[in-house]
Write a protein that binds this DNA or RNA. Sequence first.
DNA 1: CCCTGATTCGC
DNA 2: GCGAATCAGG
Length: 159
Amino acid sequence: MPVLSPTWTDERIELLRQHFEAGLSCREIAADIGVSRNAVIGKLSRLNLTRGRTIDDRKVHDRGLAPARAPRTVPRLQYEMLATIYGETGAPMVTFPIDDANRCSLLELAENRCRWPISTPGADDFCFCGNSAPDGQSYCAGHSRLAYRPNSRARVMRG
DNA sequence: CCCTGATTCGC
DNA sequence: GCGAATCAGG
């Protein structure tokens, strides 16, 4: 690993395009390349590579920057928000066990397989999660959420 | 609150 | 040109 970060090299741009065309989300692309999500999006926009939406579609051109937010949120919405972060009203949402029984090697990886790396690259037991991943997702539901998040009770890497 | 993509703007 | 900040929508 080089000491310098040459930002966007041809390799990275190629990776960017590969993942973009593969249908991966910007968040996944960013995590895979090692940059922030905005960096990926910014680069994509700079390359005129946007998926669907363009400036022409944008309605509000009059950027007053929050002049007056009138439309008050409905109490119900607020309740949902708070319930999400708070106790969830006795929600039995326990920690989801990540099955390590489906581990597979890089060669066995498929589009619907979780690509979460297990152990360290180069190790004899190095493999991937291999759990079923949603369409367009690189990781399974559990790992997708664990991939990158500042708010985590504990970094449960290595399953 | 979480997330996403897309634009804007300072560096 | 790059990317954080910001906006807009789900």
